[in-house]
């Protein structure tokens, strides 16, 4: 008891310290959003908040961000689950697949996005291949995958980028207790398909959920990815935040603080969801 009591207070305090910069940012942007701080401070006023609330482009950008991040996350999750279930043996093919799936892990977002521009753009490699194969005749015949409204390039790129992390987690979820539970299911009468559906996938889902939430948070929050691959209309939320913040017009800069505040609040909410899924997954282990 004493050990626990004495260990608990510093732990909480240290965690608070880690979060402090975000809290400072939250406080500052909140103050700036209501006109009490920042370059455009002119006394308490809700004018910036009001302008942002009425600005449809902001909300459309936010909606696009959520849509693209959700779709990319879903694709990456499906791929990671497939790799983790399909390649968990000790054979050469299994190992090769696991290594190959891990390689993009350390590739920075900015490289992934830059590479996507060079490959998926209308004069990129895919377009050349298509032309060489005679499918299209000139670059404009190639579907726009970059800076496009549906965000196909963005979605594919970041789905690819996040497969390694999710695969890594999925493989370790299955390695911990997966085989034993699957054997139990089989000997209790479940067919391979039923075992997959009733044991492997639910187990994987619970263990993987916190990682999936993190991946969504990362993709939704990327600035450089959205700047290089996202559309200009609707403008992705991260890009909109930076553009308003950088604006010469002081009114727009005030709006930038409202977007900053909104981004940080959304981050806070996402972290709460993450911690909820993490606690659920943690309970699976005992």
């Amino acid at each position: 008891m004493t050990a626990r009591a004495s260990g608990s207070a510093p732990g909480a305090a240290l965690a608070g310290l880690v979060a402090a910069p975000v809290v400072v940012g939250l406080g500052y942007s909140a103050a700036a959003a209501i006109g009490l701080a920042g370059p455009a401070a002119r006394g308490l006023s809700l004018v910036h908040i009001d302008r942002v609330m009425r600005d449809a482009t902001v909300w459309r950008g936010l909606a696009w961000t959520i849509y693209a991040a959700a779709l990319a996350t879903a694709l990456a999750t499906a791929a990671a689950v497939a790799v983790a279930i399909g390649f968990r043996g000790t054979g050469i093919g299994d190992r090769l697949a696991r290594i190959a799936a891990l390689v993009p892990f350390p590739i920075p977002y900015v490289v992934a996005a830059a590479g996507a521009v060079l490959v998926l753009g209308q004069s990129g490699l895919l377009a050349r291949l298509a032309a060489a194969a005679g499918v299209i005749h000139d670059p404009s015949g190639f579907p726009p995958l970059v800076l496009d409204r549906p965000g196909l390039g963005f979605i594919l790129t970041f789905a690819w980028k996040e497969v390694p992390f999710l695969t890594f987690v999925a493989v370790s979820v299955l390695a911990t207790r997966g085989q034993q539970l699957e054997e139990t299911a089989r000997t209790l009468g479940a067919s391979p398909a039923a075992t997959l559906r009733r044991v492997t996938v639910p187990l994987l889902w619970r263990g993987l959920a916190p990682a999936v939430v993190l991946v969504f948070i990362f993709i939704a929050g990327t600035y450089e990815g959205a700047a290089l691959l996202g559309p200009t209309d609707p403008l992705p939320f991260a890009v909109a935040t930076y553009e308003r913040y950088q604006a010469l017009d002081l009114t727009l800069r005030g709006d930038g603080f409202v977007l900053t505040l909104l981004g940080l609040i959304l981050g806070l909410a996402a972290v709460a969801v993450f911690e909820w899924t993490r606690a659920r997954a943690e309970r699976l282990r005992s």
Binding site: V18, V24, G25, S29, A238, G263, L266, L268, F274, E275
Partner: peptide, 22 residues
């Protein structure tokens, strides 16, 4: 505490940056 520790890693980096710049 875990949520607090994860927050700086999970908050949108651009918002962390603009919130802290001044």
């Amino acid at each position: 505490a875990v949520a607090a520790a994860v927050l700086p890693a999970a908050a949108p980096p651009i918002a962390v940056a603009t919130g802290l710049q001044l």
